[in-house]
Design a protein around this nucleic acid. Structure first.
Lengths: 236, 236
DNA sequence: CGGAGTGTTGACGTCCGTCAAGTGGGGTGG
DNA sequence: CCACCCCACTTGACGGACGTCAACACTCCG
């Protein structure tokens, strides 16, 4: 539309997450400099972004799709530490190597930064670093909530808490309730909640019987009454 | 000792954690400005620094002693999200209100910052903010490890992982092994590991029987062989 | 030395994990 | 367009790890 010589258009400007991702901290001119160091990456379902233990060369922003972050014990036990959605930043907790693996749940687009180059940009734009610190604070709070879930909540409370969180993040209002299409299967729900797929399945069946939850297919959920549903998280 | 007019001594300079806490990011002149906004706070065992849900007016640095960070569910279930020791920063994950309670385990000295004034200093010294971001990254990594413990490890693995972490942080080499005086009791070990005091106690007894651990009194532990002990964390 | 509080041990129950057999939805090919 | 098949999910029966409840023992402190 408006391509003046001093401000020609560039990809980051029209990015879908321009106003929600870390980019929101920057004005157009600064964004241009960020644009100069990014690469767009597209991944299919199940594709690996990086593995736990790899050298942490890159950091990422989720543009579209969703990711799962997970850690493995040598004997195969897995813990999912988080799910990422558009606008989320990936790489806040990294040292020299990644502390977890990141995999795409569905077709996903990422925006990739080389670590060193982003670091230089952080020096130039303190407000970008300020935003990262604020994001890190949010993630820490989330992680602490998750610790409470895993350490002290029952199976039902864990599943309800997760479904509620996911609904708030990726759901839409529908039929006087709340509906969401989950990008992950039962094994992922299980490894996030510290349960088994069987227990997750049984719990969801129970919630359905109690009328707290509807399902349509295996991945579409519908919560008829959020208030009533929330009463079972253990948080109230 | 050396009180030149341009550089008179001030408390922060001789602080015990001058080189390990966030202060390590600052030179003497900058430290003076930090010094200008801090208050020293002393707490007895069991004293509360702040409660979950309180307005987050202050941030802190641990100078000496130790703290426990915990969250409560309405029915009284408690999860301890971390223990803090000298040099640790308290307040990385805070929004407008504290997301957890902080209590002193033993006699503890804190260095207190008003949130707004520290924020101003962060603007002036980007490297201070940089250091906070790096600390936040470490805390996130720790939290993720803790998630794996709570979600997927057995009772024995949880206790061993915790004792090992504590020994590395507050222990000393002794008798060809590693020894530590724990500042917290069984209930705290239990609420950190997501177990009950009984299970923690039984597990410790079992470790003693197996020769993996000695105890002297209720709070002094001694690990004769760290290598052998580590084999039971689940991480190898 | 004594008492109170913390930790330990024992008996038993329960929630969730394990193992195994269905069931159903969705995609493919006829 | 329908049938089939595969895979993911569901359901059931059973077992085990950890929680609960209660009695006992030890430590620490006055």
């Amino acid at each position: 539309m408006d391509g003046t010589p001093s401000s020609p258009n560039f990809p980051c400007q029209s990015c879908e997450v321009r106003d929600t991702a870390i980019c929101a901290a920057l004005d157009d001119e600064e964004l241009r400099q960020l644009n100069a160091i990014v690469t767009s990456v597209k991944l299919g379902p199940g594709a690996t972004v990086f593995h736990e233990g790899d050298d942490s060369t890159y950091l990422f922003n989720v543009v579209s799709g969703s990711l799962r972050l997970s850690k493995l014990l040598p004997d195969g036990r897995r813990q999912i530490t988080g799910f990422l959605f558009p606008g989320d930043f990936l790489g806040l907790s990294i040292a020299e190597v990644y502390a977890y693996s990141a995999e795409a749940l569905v077709e996903t687009t990422l925006c990739r930064f080389e670590r060193g180059r982003l670091a230089k940009l952080l020096e130039r734009f303190p407000k970008l670093e300020h935003r990262l610190l604020s994001l890190a604070g949010n993630e820490l709070t989330q992680a602490q909530d998750h610790l409470m879930v895993l350490g002290r909540k029952t199976a039902a409370e864990r599943v309800i808490t997760l479904l509620l969180t996911l609904s708030k993040r990726i759901g839409v209002e529908q039929n006087g309730g709340w509906q969401a299409d989950l990008p992950m299967g039962r094994p992922d729900l299980a490894d996030y909640t510290g349960l088994t797929t069987e227990t997750v399945s049984r719990t969801i069946s129970l919630l359905r019987k109690k009328g707290l939850l509807d399902t349509n297919g295996m991945r579409r959920i519908h919560i008829p009454d959020i208030e009533k549903f929330s009463l079972h998280t253990g948080d109230y």
